[in-house]
Design a protein around this nucleic acid. Structure first.
Length: 494
RNA sequence: GGCGCAUUCGUCUAGUGGUUAGGACACAAGGUUCUCAACUUUGGAACAGGGGUUCAAUUCCCCUAUGCGCUACCA
């Protein structure tokens, strides 16, 4: 039997970092075992589900390159089938009509009600409609009395299942109430819908967040009532905020959204690599993995039981997201195959309106050389259009503090640098080694330090205090631009 | 409240009945350098606490603490 797994987000927001990891683990598991990775949108909560959210989730998955197999299943499309199943269980006597009037409660009240009711320690089977005869029940229904359908959970015994991560799980029936399958407005509820869809989709392994671990018992009960074979469950530890609390949009903002990383210049492969290490490890010291390696090495038995903290500091721009994610991204940018990086840089330059078609035509070699030079110290793809702007445009800014430190602190540079430009005009081969000799000689003549000249030049050529080796920058920018910029007075006038 | 799950450096983690408890990120110091990165060297930094079992426990068991999850006619 081929492995079939699914990622089943509910479209009530963007793709959350924890969901993204769940999707990734499902994807890796499917690919590892040569199975199918399916996608199901659980849009049965009408109030909260939005199309925009679905789109955003799909975008996130696409960005992470977690391509799903087969058609997307929208859970709401299956509502009729879910209702049929509930009715079937009712007919078989495995479920019953509950005519208790529905209580309207706000979200906040619900939480309180749960605690309150729990305190009462009431008998889970204490429902007067549970043992109503079929005739009485039918009669009430025929008159049009509204009812919910509840599963009839046995009074004694226990459910159990072997979780692929957490091991044997057992739960006493007495702790599980007769769960509602169908609301009184005939809307199927989550536990029923999930089980029906998983059966219909022939899901073999349910890999999902640990927040579903205890509810799994309810689902097991449904599988049993239906006489269906249950899948293998594997629950994943949660990803927590730095205070070990829940990581949420409301409290933590965009740092938990997948689109944020895409929009901040993350390389999808790098973020994926970071994500896979949250809750899983191959049991070795390697940490950088290609997607093929991940597919090969991934397995459920190296998943942790302990929750992981997504470590970031809200008010510190330097650590706005997890340091390791930032490091991983930089690592990818400077070490990935240049041919893989180029399209990403192209997209970034395009969105910054810095892209020129020559870059993949007559200027291709030069462009690639430039990217290869500046990627060395970049952290995100955004850096190519910000810090790296001077390499792609004449319209770039000068860092004011760097002007003071590297330029105006040495007033002589205002004459020296244009003089250097004159000198560079005469260099035969505009290459690193030649330039070095010429500039060293120039430095000696002016009785100044090499660094003073170079950092002054760095200001005029790149607008920045930091960057690649200046000799290489000269060579990369070329004679024409170098000379032009050395003579420019723009920075001096600021 | 009940039930469940978990607990190794600040964070992600490796690991074993006997280890100097390993790595990565972050941090600090030195080297390198035209700057900044990268690179490199070094450093600080952890087995939640208490009981058992055992010749020996971070590793197995129990208790406590702490954290998290679930406990809805939400998903």
């Amino acid at each position: 039997m081929t492995t079939r797994v699914r990622f089943a987000p509910s479209p009530t927001g963007y793709l959350h970092i924890g969901s993204a990891r769940t999707a990734l683990f499902n994807y890796l598991f499917a690919r590892h075992s040569g199975g199918k990775f399916l996608l199901r949108i659980e849009d049965t909560d009408l109030q909260r589900s939005t199309e925009e959210s679905t789109r955003s989730i799909l975008d996130g998955l696409k960005w992470l390159e977690l391509e799903h197999d087969e058609n997307i299943v929208y859970q709401s499309d299956n509502a009729d089938k879910h209702r049929e199943v509930a009715l079937k269980l009712l007919n078989e006597g495995k479920a019953y009509r509950d005519f208790t009037p529905k209580e309207e409660r706000s979200d906040k009240d619900v939480k309180e009600a749960i605690v309150e009711r729990a305190r009462e320690q009431k008998d889970m089977r204490d429902n007067s409609f549970r043992d109503l005869s079929k005739e009485e029940s039918d009669a009430k229904a025929d008159v049009g009395e509204p009812f919910a359908i509840r599963l009839k959970v046995a009074a004694s015994g226990k459910t159990n299942f072997e979780d692929a991560v957490y091991g044997l799980q057992e739960r006493d029936y007495s702790e599980i109430e007769d769960l509602v399958l169908l609301r009184s407005d005939s809307h199927p509820l989550y536990n029923l819908a999930v089980v029906c869809d998983d059966i219909e989709m022939r899901i073999t392994h349910v890999i999902r967040g640990q927040d579903h671990l205890t509810n799994t018992h309810k689902q097991v009960l449904i599988y049993e009532a239906l006489g269906a074979e249950k899948p293998i469950f594997g629950h994943l530890p949660l990803i927590l905020a730095p205070n070990r609390g829940k990581l949420s949009k409301r409290k933590h903002g965009e740092v938990v959204s997948m689109t944020t990383y895409r929009d901040h210049g993350f390389v999808a492969a790098a973020f994926r690599n970071f994500l896979v290490l949250l809750g899983w490890s191959a049991g070795e010291e390697q940490e950088i993995y290609s997607i093929d390696e991940l597919i090969e090495k991934f397995s459920l038995d190296h998943i942790h039981k302990n929750n992981a903290v997504f470590n970031f500091q809200e008010n510190d721009p330097r650590h706005w997201t997890d340091d390791k994610a930032l490091w991983m991204n930089a690592e990818y940018i400077r070490t990935m195959f240049l041919e893989d990086l180029i399209p990403l840089v192209k997209a970034e330059l395009k969105s910054a309106k810095l892209w020129r078609d020559e870059y993949e035509d007559e200027d291709k070699i030069h462009f690639e050389k430039t990217v290869d030079l500046i990627r060395e110290r970049f952290f995100t793809l955004k850096d190519f259009s910000s810090q790296g702007r001077a390499f792609f445009s004449e319209d770039f800014d000068f860092d004011p503090t760097a002007i003071a430190k590297n330029l105006k602190k040495f007033p002589d540079l205002q004459t020296w640098l244009p003089e250097l430009a004159d000198r560079l005009e005469t260099v035969e081969d505009f290459t690193h080694d030649n330039l070095e000799a010429v500039i060293k000689k120039f430095t000696e003549e002016r009785q100044t330090k090499f660094g003073v000249i170079m950092n002054g030049a760095r200001m005029l050529l790149t607008g920045q205090a930091v960057g690649a080796s200046m000799l290489t920058v000269f060579e990369t920018l070329g004679r024409e631009k170098s000379i032009l910029r050395l003579r420019s007075q723009i920075a001096w006038n600021q």
